[in-house]
């Protein structure tokens, strides 16, 4: 797909957004009763459910236990009806396993694992509808679920995608822009310190553009961080008032 279709002459993208505009974010915390923490996050048309169990005793073989910190176990699963073309297996293929590993590494860096030696924290994400930015929405949803579960974190983790079309960096790409051949840079940062915890790039662009695309992605992350923080505050104040009332 040529660049002219992804970015019009007026500077508008396919879904009408400006290059530096994020998609609409809606989030709901605490939707499931039996999970310790759960969250539902929508970024545009991408919908993700995350559930957190833990910290609890290591399930399965005890050899996985780490003597000085908790072991983070993640599972990334996509529903079979989530994509345009039906997916035969929700998990177990290479891409899902790779995503699960990256989620584990990201959250092992952000959670204060040294407080729970020899235990396990489970994070399960389920993609209900995929419209680009699946991994980033999963990271954000899992982070909200961790906050709902009350797991101590060093800092929140926020993730965002950025792309480059006709020398203009775009933030928060959707499926059409992603499959159109333009490069996609996924970044997860800790918003307070601005440090990068995970980064990956698909497709290619010249190294001179790296700086501005990276800047766009980091700015997008910080913006998403602000929005999610507001949602978190709203949820916790609601919880507080209902506890005080009872």
């Amino acid at each position: 797909m040529s660049g002219t279709e992804l970015l019009s002459d007026q500077g508008l993208r396919i879904d009408g957004r400006k290059p530096n505009e994020l998609r609409r974010i809606r989030c709901s915390l605490g939707i499931f009763a039996q999970a310790d923490g759960s969250a539902y996050l929508e970024q545009g048309n991408t919908k993700v459910l995350a559930a957190v169990y833990g910290p609890h005793e290591i399930r399965g073989s005890k050899s996985k236990a780490l003597h000085d910190k908790a072991f983070v176990n993640c599972q990334y699963s996509t529903a079979t009806f989530s994509m345009g073309e039906r997916k035969r297996r929700p998990r177990g293929d290479r891409k899902s396993t790779e995503m699960s590993t990256h989620l584990e590494e990201t959250f092992a860096a952000a959670i204060r694992t040294e407080l729970y030696p020899r235990s396990q924290i489970d994070i399960f994400v389920e993609v209900l509808q995929a419209d680009g930015g699946n991994y980033t929405t999963c990271v954000n949803a899992a982070m909200m679920a961790l906050v709902d579960a009350g797991v101590p974190l060093k800092d929140t983790v926020v993730s965002c995608t950025a792309s480059l079309v006709k020398d203009t960096p775009l933030v928060d790409v959707n499926h059409v822009e992603q499959s159109g051949g333009s490069p996609e840079l996924v970044v997860s940062i800790l918003p307070h310190s601005g440090e990068i915890v995970y980064m990956s790039l698909t497709q290619r662009f010249h190294i001179d553009h790296l700086s501005k695309v990276l800047d766009t992605a980091i700015k997008g992350c910080k913006d998403i961080g602000v929005i999610l923080k507001e949602i978190m505050k709203g949820h916790l104040t609601k919880l507080d008032t209902s506890l005080q009332a009872s």
Binding site: F32, Q34, A35, S38, L49, A50, A51, Y53, R59, N73, Q75, S77, A79, T80, P90, R91, G92, D122, F124, E126
Partner: peptide, 16 residues
């Protein structure tokens, strides 16, 4: 028909 038990329901449903 295809039924998938998500691990969100209980950690025992993880993997297979």
């Amino acid at each position: 028909f295809f039924v998938d038990c998500s691990a969100n329901a209980t950690p025992e449903f993880e993997g297979r």
